[in-house]
Computed example of a mutant assay.
Amino acid sequence: MDRQEQFRKQVRVIYQLLKVVVSIIIIVAIAGIYLIVDPSFSVFKKSAPDSAYIVVQEDEEDRIENGIHVRSGLVEAEGLMEVVNNCTNCHSSKLVIQNRMTAERWIATIRWMQETQNLWDLGGNEEIIVNYLVTNYPPIKKGRRENLRNVEWYDLQN
């Protein structure tokens, strides 16, 4: 090998090392910027033990205020936690609240969810859930709106 070839080989090695060093600097810079923007970045944060999380979850999420379950917005009554544990795993409690139905319709809806939406067998909880829903969210009788009275009609001008 002549000197020029050796020089080129050394330049290539230095170039490769320089690429690695620059890449590391870029990664460290991005991580630093991310920490400035989001200091709670989970890789650098110590996690709380599981038991501490559970205590917070029980205290905060299952709180009742003014007869309402805070997390779900459902009425506090017998069967509340069965509804929370079985219904709100898949959808919002607001969906439950707005769909006021009779016991027969709730049972038909549960069967539909079991057949098409992979809802598990509710076992003995089914009766508790249906009773809770029918008692606390019964169908609201909606009739035709009342006729308009004492209306001053006028012609529209072109």
Results as ranks from 00 to 15, higher is better:
M1P: 03
R3S: 14
R3W: 14
R3L: 08
Q4H: 01
Q4G: 06
Q4T: 15
F7L: 12
K9D: 09
Q10S: 05
V11Y: 10
R12I: 12
V13W: 09
Y15L: 11
Y15Q: 05
K19A: 15
K19H: 14
S23E: 10
S23K: 05
I24Y: 05
I26S: 07
V28G: 02
V28E: 06
V28I: 15
Y34M: 12
P39A: 00
S40N: 10
S42P: 12
F44T: 13
S47H: 08
D50I: 14
S51E: 06
S51Y: 11
Y53N: 04
Q57I: 11
E58F: 09
D59L: 02
E60Y: 06
E60V: 14
E61G: 02
E61L: 13
D62Y: 15
D62M: 05
D62I: 13
R63T: 10
I64W: 02
I64V: 15
E65M: 13
N66K: 08
N66P: 04
N66W: 06
G67S: 10
G67R: 03
G67K: 04
I68S: 07
I68V: 15
H69A: 12
R71C: 02
R71H: 08
R71W: 04
L74M: 14
V75P: 01
V75Q: 06
M81F: 15
M81K: 03
E82M: 11
V83H: 00
C87G: 05
N89R: 03
N89Q: 04
S92P: 06
S92N: 10
S93L: 01
S93N: 08
K94Q: 09
K94L: 14
L95Y: 03
V96G: 01
N99T: 13
N99D: 12
M101K: 11
T102P: 04
A103S: 03
R105V: 13
R105N: 04
I107P: 01
I110F: 15
I110L: 05
I110G: 11
R111A: 15
R111M: 13
W112Q: 11
W112F: 13
M113I: 03
E115H: 15
T116G: 02
T116Q: 07
Q117C: 00
N118P: 11
N118R: 08
N118S: 09
N118A: 10
L119I: 01
L119V: 08
L122S: 07
L122D: 09
L122A: 14
L122H: 04
G123N: 03
G124D: 12
N125G: 12
I128A: 01
L133D: 01
T135G: 07
N136I: 02
Y137S: 00
Y137E: 00
P138W: 02
I140E: 10
I140N: 09
K142P: 06
E146C: 03
R149T: 15
N150C: 15
V151A: 13
E152R: 08
E152C: 05
W153A: 14
D155G: 11
D155Q: 09
L156S: 14
N158R: 05
